[in-house]
Amino acid sequence: MVHLATPDRRASLRARPGFRERIDLPRRVVFVAAASMIGVVVLLLAFIAWQGLQLFLKDGIPITQIFSAEWQPDRMSGTVNFGLLPFIAGTIFVTVVALVISTPLSVGLALFLSEVAPQWAKAIVQPALEIFVGIPSVVWGWLGLTILVPFLSDTFQQGLVVSLPVLGEVFRAPGFRTGFSWLAGSLVLSIMILPTVTSVSYDAFRAVPQELRTGSLALGTTRWQAIRHILVPAALPGVLTAVVLGMTRAAGEALAVQMVIGSSPVFPRAITQPLSTLTSQITLEMGNTVFGEPWQDALWTMSLVLLVISITSVVLVRVINSRRIAL
């Protein structure tokens, strides 16, 4: 047996903590690192809000004017009017159509990955989605510009008609003039938000307890019945979160959209026509305006609107998620 040199008396357990322990520097440092994000948000809100309000405070534009439909920012060409309605409507319309296209596809893909796909298929599709996420937005825009836009203008020159069996013609829009259009923007966005909506929905489906699936299948339902009647209702808040997150991304995307929508500052009329959005108008005009002039102030107001939209969606996601726990 090895001789044991355990001393009989030791330092008291109550040894006063040294300077180091009392300061606990590591804790302070990591706290500052995490809390820096609060600082960023506060600064961001303060600066954008201040700049965004200049249009009303300094330039004396009545707040109601931004809800008008006429965008006439250039003093050189007559009376100015800062109607942001075309851009707000443009952002909403492009986003909504993108969601209409993307949601069924994304949710289907999430269901495929979580319920249907064998391991080998998941091992291919999941990395593919990660690559989708990584493709830069300018590349999506470029693809839209060089492939989608010419395709649309060539194919649907006479007009866009959707007709279904039984129901007959359900939708008609005038033909594309150039291909740069609301639809082009929505299509590009629908692919760009696909990975986000898919992965958040996928998590929601995975979170549904296995017993619910087996419970339904044991009652003799088909897999599809289990998905429709058990899985989708159970995962609905999660899917809703996914859609809101996708919406946020779509509404905030700038360059890819700007490259394909034609940037026409008028109230959007048809899905085949060009329009403009908040982000694309900022992208386009920020460089051509001078700091402090009303025109640029109106662009700052647009960015404030975007900021309000995104903060609202964060709150919305939180509300949806708190409901989920309550259920």
């Binding site: 030791r10 330092a11 008291s12 357990l13 109550r14 040894a15 006063r16 903590p17 322990e21």
Partner: peptide, 20 residues
């Protein structure tokens, strides 16, 4: 109590305690 010292005392260093 570890040798008469109450280890629950808030002033006790848990690090020292766990070494012993």
């Amino acid at each position: 109590c570890l040798e008469g010292e109450n280890v629950m005392d808030p002033e006790v260093s848990v690090v020292e305690l766990r070494r012993r």
